[in-house]
């Protein structure tokens, strides 16, 4: 019986201390860590159309269309299909694609979640956190990897 009373006392203790672990979500926005991987942001100005991100993407989420002169025309990313592994950001030599902390995105249909480069450019920062800055200390480890200069496959 002592065990039963212990169980009951423990739950009652939690009931009476009045503390809650959950938060009221839209009012209390959660703190996300600087490394959090949310929706992508793409910068056409920076992009050199090396297609490394398209190459490394494990499930073909990124689709790049180029013309005959190897000028970039389209940059499409299906954020509903993406598994948020951050490999595209990791391989990008010019930080043209970033994963922001923004996890609040919706769409009525699957097609709504297929973003083109304009939509990707307009993805807002979450709480004005620029992931590039917050993650900066670590990027050296990957950008200068291997020997010699970066290989553009």
């Amino acid at each position: 019986m002592i065990g039963l009373f212990k169980s009951m006392a423990t739950t009652m203790k939690h009931a009476l201390d009045g503390s809650t672990f959950t938060v009221e979500y839209p009012e209390t926005t959660p703190e996300v860590s600087p490394r959090f991987r949310g929706v992508h942001k793409f910068s056409q100005e920076r992009c050199i159309w090396c297609r490394q991100c398209e190459n490394v993407c494990p499930n073909d989420t990124i689709q790049i269309v180029m013309d005959d002169q190897r000028n970039g025309e389209q940059y499409n990313l299906h954020i509903g299909q993406c598994i948020y592994c951050r490999l595209c950001e990791e391989v990008c030599p010019v930080d043209a694609i970033l994963l922001t902390q923004n996890f609040e995105f919706t769409g009525d249909t699957k097609d709504d979640l297929a973003y083109n480069k304009e939509q990707l450019k307009n993805v807002p920062w979450y709480k004005d956190i620029d992931p590039l800055q917050s993650r900066e200390p670590d990027r050296g480890a990957w950008i200068g990897e291997g020997e010699g200069e970066v290989d553009y496959e």
Binding site: T11, M12, H14, A15, S19, T20, F21, T22, V23, E24
Partner: peptide
Amino acid sequence: KITAAFTDRIAVN
């Protein structure tokens, strides 16, 4: 509400 109090949650509000 009662269950929420026991489980440290907020429940309907």
